[in-house]
Design a protein around this nucleic acid. Structure first.
Lengths: 252, 252
DNA sequence: CGCCAGTTTGATTTGTGTCAATAAGCGTGG
DNA sequence: CCACGCTTATTGACACAAATCAAACTGGCG
């Protein structure tokens, strides 16, 4: 299946390396869309004390693996990751892509073990937030507690949107919707909404959208031929936002 | 679309009726699988004070509607409900079925408005738990806070399972998986795992599984002909648990 | 008892998967 | 710097599972 089945809790970046990665939430330009959102500077200092930062993950490196003990939530600082589950017959289902400022790992809470795996799609820096500390902290910080509830609730509604997409929409609509989602998330980080590089492969896109690689490729070709997109491998330019939204068929 | 678009917060069962529905978590036989799980009797008393119980919902009655203000989580006491979202083009996507002891409404937390709607599939009794009270309570009751996090986390992993099902499995596998899920949830409530009545229509099943009514009907016929099931409209008997699990293709 | 929503079954169409082959990136080492 | 090999992406021909269209049947409820 893969050569990257190491146990992240033993050999992962947060134990194997003792370098200091001098970054703080306070100076992080993602703080307004990340965990710190909604915290005043006093509370932020407390949060700061529990956050761990390790060496960046290499492309294809595993952050955590399904079944291993759950300890932390993770915030993406740079790069991108994919979340996925392995089906009982050994295939992979990509359940989400995680871009800077986004939080992953919440599916591990219920069983105290990760229900999915996470792998870096490119070199990626990640902050680890030990969940037991976060739990204790959130009991004394109503804003944090609420933010965590909201974060998990948002994940639920986003999963429901994906369920709807998979259940009701055509290949073209699915791809268009994903592109619009990435575009919007880029804009949120002050990046271009119309020009960007996809961090994931066609295989991952197809897997995420319940389609084959070939179909993804065909859809890209079609959208390019009709002048909606300019596609150069992973480099995407949205030429006609309007038309792309049309193609997504109002399922944003 | 529907004649049941009333605003639940104004005309719903928790305001319209002043009857006392004398039930308590302590005497409820669902308490071990519901919210009270993991609470000692002192904490339970506190929880008890915030829970509201209204008159039962009629079949097809709306519990809450997407877009309306979020106030409470709901626990199913009896009957069954479906959760669904309306797509931008007016179709419906069923996102889940809720049986006694199960909690719904968590997708409303992130935006303070319900992201989905919930409708009774049959006469159903429901407990409402005002979320702001629950939040305050959980700040002082670590067990409750943890339980809520776990509940939401479980919802996420279940949504991920549905995503995988929709993305990777055939019609037969999807139907078999749903039947096994309902069977397992019945068993959890001490009911028969092999004989039960489906509370939802074929349309709802198809909608939930991303298939048409006709396909659902054909799958039931096939499973019956091959001796795996006995199907009499909504009355289901699992004749060969083993074979059904086989049909679900290890995607439990 | 009759009506209408819900269900079943059949015939046909279609979007996407599968199989196959070529082409284009990209890292590695000569 | 180019040559090599491997992974990833594109394009085409064909197959198939499920959708669609159509019609008959069933059963619950007024």
């Amino acid at each position: 299946m893969s050569v990257h089945l190491q146990n992240a809790s033993e050999t992962g970046p947060f134990r194997a390396c003792n370098h200091e990665y001098k970054v703080s939430c306070e100076t992080c330009r993602l703080s307004r869309i990340c965990l710190p959102l909604a915290l005043d500077s006093g509370d932020l200092d407390q949060l700061e004390t529990i956050i761990q930062r390790g060496r960046p993950l290499q492309k294809n490196e595993l952050l955590y693996h399904e079944g291993t003990p759950f300890q932390s939530l993770y915030a993406v600082r740079s790069g991108a990751l994919k979340g996925y589950r392995t089906t009982p017959d050994g295939r992979e289902q990509v359940t989400g892509f995680y871009l800077p400022g986004e939080i992953l790992g919440m599916d591990g809470i219920s069983e105290n073990a990760h229900a999915s795996s996470a792998r870096a799609l490119e070199t990626a820096a990640v902050c680890a937030v030990p969940f037991d500390s976060l739990e204790k902290l959130s009991a004394t910080m109503p804003g944090l507690q609420r933010h965590l509830f909201q974060l998990m609730s948002r994940e639920i509604t986003e999963d429901q949107l994906l369920i709807t997409l998979l259940s009701k929409n055509t290949a073209d609509e699915r791809v268009a919707t994903l592109l619009l989602s990435i575009s919007r998330r880029n804009a949120r980080r002050q990046l271009s909404a119309s020009q960007f590089r996809l961090p994931m492969s066609r295989v991952d896109i197809g897997n995420y959208l319940g389609l084959t690689v070939e179909t993804i490729s065909r859809v890209f070709s079609r959208l390019q031929k009709s002048g909606v997109l300019s596609v150069d491998n992973k480099e995407i330019e949205i030429l006609d936002q309007e038309a792309l939204q049309q193609a997504a068929n109002i399922a944003a």
